[in-house]
Simulated scan of single mutants.
Amino acid sequence: MLSINEIHQGDCRNLLKQIEPNSIALSVWSPPYFVGKEYEKYLSYEDWVELLTETIKLHYNILKPGGFLAINIADILCFPDPAIPKFQSRNISMQRSPITKEQILQAKAENPDLNRNQLAALLGCSEQTIDRRLNGNNIRGGKYETQTRVHLVGNIIEQAGYEAKLYMYDRRIWKKDPSWMNSKWHNSSYRAVSEYEDIYILWKPGETVVNRDKLTSQEWTSWGSRAVWEFSSVRANREHEAMFPVELPKRLIKLLTEPEDIVLDCFMGSGTTAIAAILEKRNYIGTELLEEYVVLAKRNIEEEKKKIEMKNRQLKLALVSY
């Protein structure tokens, strides 16, 4: 059996089988999003779906009856899909020349013997503008980029859970800082800028004790019973490409577990969930595929423990002085 309060290296699909059955009060994690991060480039779309569904299904055996699985993920998955017909948007707002495709076609019809350079001189624009208008926006030689597939993830999670007899219990929305402000989506399509992620909460059948005393009345009012949680993203992902703020697992741990319960994170990354568990006086088990992140998580956990120890010492000194 995997020991508690440790980060274990390896594929979570193998390591979850080594966790004591019916021992995990809450599993909270954020899987690879399949958006091209360095640590997920080994996954095809099919591999990614298999990783997500298998990991969910392995939770039935290890969760306590009445326990929870919380998955933080951006519900809209976006990735290149060669199967989608290729069309290039004509972004009028970014065109430097006012010359339109219709004007070029009219000029060609009236002057069939003119080549592209001559047409450009006639219309007072560059030959590149002629090529772009006729062959697609910012495209040379008629080559079009692979289209982006926009795919919802929630149904994958719900179906995998249902097949494992883990049932959808709740969904919270994390409203974060808007992202992708400088991306081609923001500049050249009607797609919205991403500014929230979902937290899907699955439940293993069994008695769940509801104890509102775990939160203060202010906490219940501000977030405990609210569907939308608003707090900032991690400002700089220098240590890991996809860090979430400690507030996210901390709220879930405080809401859905009791002191001394065991909290699991299958994709531990930089150690955020373990730190949240320590802050809330819970135990934890972490699994992580890459050795460099195991080392990183352990270092961050030890640094947090030192901060807690220093704070406790200062508190004791303050009490003695008082």
Rank of each mutant, 00 (worst) to 15 (best):
G141N: 09
E260V: 00
S225T: 10
W203V: 04
G206P: 03
E50T: 13
R90H: 10
H240R: 05
S179E: 10
Q128H: 12
Y33E: 12
N300L: 00
R212V: 06
W229N: 01
R140Q: 12
Q147D: 04
Q103S: 08
E304N: 09
L296F: 04
A74S: 14
K204P: 00
L315P: 01
T100Q: 06
K86W: 01
I7R: 05
I173Q: 09
D170R: 07
N283Y: 06
W174Q: 02
L252T: 02
E158F: 06
Y196F: 15
F79H: 15
V234T: 10
E241I: 02
G286W: 11
R251Q: 12
K165T: 08
Y196W: 14
Q314W: 10
G66C: 07
N312V: 12
L202K: 09
K64N: 09
I92W: 12
E292C: 12
R251C: 08
P245E: 12
K176E: 05
A25C: 05
E241C: 07
N115W: 01
E197F: 03
T100K: 12
R235M: 11
Y45S: 07
P249G: 05
L123D: 02
L2Y: 08
T216A: 07
W229F: 01
Q9G: 09
M94A: 15
C125I: 01
I76V: 15
K250Q: 13
I275P: 00
E195F: 13
H151A: 08
Q95D: 15
P82D: 13
K305C: 04
P178V: 01
L315T: 07
N135V: 02
Q118G: 04
Q159M: 05
Y167E: 07
G206N: 05
L77K: 13
K86D: 03
Y144S: 04
N72M: 13
L15I: 04
Q88E: 15
P21V: 00
K204T: 00
S217H: 09
Q88Y: 07
K57Y: 06
I24W: 03
K204N: 02
A107L: 10
S44F: 07
Y190H: 09
K204A: 03
D261H: 06
L114Y: 14
A25L: 06
F231S: 06
T273P: 04
G141W: 11
F267M: 11
